[in-house]
């Protein structure tokens, strides 16, 4: 480990992790390579695709555009911990909605898309279809054409598309 490595404590999915990382370590690499939570994916270099979206203190954030050191003191939720944030022992309602609406195909964008959607409905509870579409502007999918993703988010919001 390089000389300028720093010790940090990250709270991820309710668990505390003590890490020693280079300051330049991207949060997404800390989550994936250091903590082993590989559900958060990387799809670009430019904050464009949203595959790496996680929740930081309940709000969507692109973990490729945060340094691990910036996340100290924050509550991080990744896709692996999402279901635990709700009552019941199944999937989070958004995960369930993506499944029931066939809102995923290859599934690579899906963790980020689901977490972005959870945050979106939290922030804007009354979205209609155009609102959901614009709200997902920062998350790219190459398989679904978005049709069923939008349907899933509306369904999770209690609005049938």
């Amino acid at each position: 480990m390089p000389a300028n490595a720093v010790r940090i404590r990250l709270s991820v999915n309710g668990r505390s992790h003590d890490l020693e990382v280079e300051p330049r370590t991207l949060l997404v690499h800390a989550l994936r390579d250091e903590i082993g939570l590989t559900g958060t994916n990387i799809g670009c270099d430019s904050s464009s695709c949203g595959a790496c979206t996680i929740l930081v203190d309940g709000q969507s954030a692109k973990s490729c555009t945060m340094l691990a050191v910036q996340a100290e003191g924050c509550d991080i939720t990744t896709i692996e911990g999402l279901a635990d944030t709700t009552d019941g022992d199944g999937l989070h309602p958004m995960q369930q909605a993506f499944h029931e609406c066939h809102g995923l195909q290859c599934g690579y964008c899906t963790p980020g898309m689901i977490l972005a959607s959870v945050s979106l409905l939290e922030e804007y509870p009354d979205l209609d279809e155009p609102g959901v579409r614009v709200g997902l502007e920062g998350n790219l999918c190459r398989c679904t054409g978005y049709h069923n993703i939008v349907k899933a988010v509306l369904s999770a919001a209690g609005k049938e598309a």
Partner: peptide, 20 residues
């Protein structure tokens, strides 16, 4: 409904970069 979805909506699925 797809059988594949469970692993994909929970982050359990392993892509190449997930395997070390």
């Amino acid at each position: 409904l797809r059988k594949e979805d469970g692993a994909l909506v929970t982050g359990e699925a392993k892509f190449v970069d997930d395997i070390h």
